[in-house]
Design a protein around this nucleic acid. Structure first.
Lengths: 240, 240
DNA sequence: ATCGAAGGGCCGACGAGCAAACCTTTACTC
DNA sequence: GAGTAAAGGTTTGCTCGTCGGCCCTTCGAT
């Protein structure tokens, strides 16, 4: 143990880049909207309430809302009964930035970690009622094989729902973050119905294993599910 | 898909509290020191270089170094050949705060995710040379069953080393963060040699599976490894 | 017609962080 | 011994994000 060299100071001394409250808020709300967690037409809490919940000043929240409104994700109406609403329809997604593309493998790695952790804990903890709701999502997906936008929305609900089944808020947050990152990556990629069908078949296997508390099968099914999308990306993105 | 209710706005609207650059730096360096990534006596890069690497102003870095120096984790000497050094010996660890204790289950959940993701990707990607180094750590651990402080140091190197074998900087960061959190939890808990011996036996199984690229066995071994510590904590902490 | 609840706009204070100096200490070199 | 280089220590002033509060405008409900 004595002569052991210092390992990996590269990671320790990597830049500390803390987002501002404004940036974090835009990202939080923007991701929730893009993922459909806040569906089109939904009304956000009143500014005075929302800023309290988010733990920021109202002026800071308004900066974020102004940005989201200028990008077309949100609109506000004044007067009694007014409020801030999610746009309907949403603006078209932007193509992924070079920075996002350059890190696609790391994003997939992170996703692997979150989804595996979630599926293992879900297999330990999920209660039957939650699983029924997830089954319904799988059924819905079967109807959406031809419409990738719809499919992806439901897909996200399924994965986030699985995270909620762990009763671990941090994992839910991690899941929404990582799904947001994945959405940026895959929005511009063609997904033929056959691919979606096989992906949904994997969903079935995952849920079946989770229902039986079969951690091992759940893990394997989830790992295959991940590798499926990773292979698709590897074929279409630079550095694949 | 139409009538689906909004789900989990609790998570979406949770507080956004971003750390300041100062806080983040203290935590980064402090964790690296507590984990032994920066061993006692090690010299940090010169302030002017370090602040450039961390992407912060020198005055901000000095705030962080002052804090770490007052807490006894670091000391500075002036003049040519001087510098900032990790203290030797380190100050005694503080008992975990109530906030940390209250979230111990979530911390374990997060750890589960990170370690499972790491072990799966390591099983896919690890090359033999890296595994040899990890084997040595296991051998060292066998000599440290009677000295928990030493054992924990090497244990951390092993786990972080496995993360490095994935070649995914983000997972390395995630691993160091989560190991830091775990250290806060377990520092004050008795670990009899038998427990450490069985824990190290699990290390062996994990590495063996990784070496053979047997994702499934590696996952199972790692999940058992996690559950081992979780059971220990459940028996000794409130809410177990 | 009025009230109340919502967004919209504005301004002053504060503190974090930055940048660029300059000072002090120390050790090596000639 | 003088000089120089390399380190930490100090000071100053500026910028900008954030806070907190105040008032305005809009518009549905009563």
């Amino acid at each position: 143990m004595s002569g052991t060299a210092v390992l990996s100071p590269e990671t320790v001394f990597a830049p500390v880049r803390s987002q501002t409250a404004f940036e974090e808020t835009v990202e939080r709300l923007g991701t929730a909207i893009k993922l459909g967690l806040l569906p089109p037409g939904a009304r956000l809490p009143a500014e005075r309430e929302l800023c309290a919940r988010l733990g920021i000043a109202r002026s800071t929240l308004r900066q974020a809302l102004t940005a989201l409104s200028q990008s077309g994700h949100v609109y506000a109406t004044r007067g009694r009964g007014g409020g801030t609403f999610v746009a309907d329809p949403l603006p078209p997604a932007e193509p992924p930035s070079p920075q996002v593309l350059a890190q696609w493998r790391e994003t997939c790695d992170e996703r692997m970690a979150v989804e595996l952790g979630v599926v293992v804990l879900a297999a330990e903890r999920a209660d039957p009622a939650e699983l029924v709701a997830l089954d319904e999502h799988v059924a819905t997906l079967e109807q959406e094989l031809e419409d990738f936008a719809a499919y992806r929305q439901t897909d996200i609900r399924l994965h986030v729902g699985l995270a909620e089944a762990t009763s671990s808020p941090r994992l839910v947050r991690a899941m929404t973050d990582v799904q947001g990152a994945m959405t940026d990556l895959i929005a511009y990629i063609a997904h033929p119905p056959e691919v979606l069908a096989s992906s949904n078949e994997q969903h079935r296997r995952i849920l079946a294993a989770v229902r039986e508390h079969d951690t091992l099968r759940a893990t394997r099914a989830m790992a295959e599910h991940m590798q499926g999308t990773e292979r698709v990306l590897a074929g279409l993105l630079p550095g694949g």
